[in-house]
Amino acid sequence: MAVRTAKISDPVGLHLRAASRIVQVAKEFQSEITIAYDGVETNAKSILGLASLVARYQEPLELRAEGPDEGAALDALVQLIEVGLGEES
């Protein structure tokens, strides 16, 4: 089990485009990945789950992964949430 925290770098928060990117990246990994925000936990591979987190700019997300590629999965997702999302929009 790997656990990491990441702050949302995108000023509009975890909007649709960002959530799509997270799902797409998460699906590249075999591990079970969850993302928790404000006490609610969801599957990182579920677009509706991520959208319903209503996570905002600069807020911390807690990422957990379990599986053969858990480390790599969290590396990629943290990078995406802290840097990639902001750059993209």
Partner: peptide
């Protein structure tokens, strides 16, 4: 096309 990417993901959203 990104909006459509998100919509397509719903159709594969196993949790949902």
């Amino acid at each position: 096309a990104t909006i459509l990417d998100a919509q397509l993901l719903i159709l594969d959203d196993e949790t949902f």
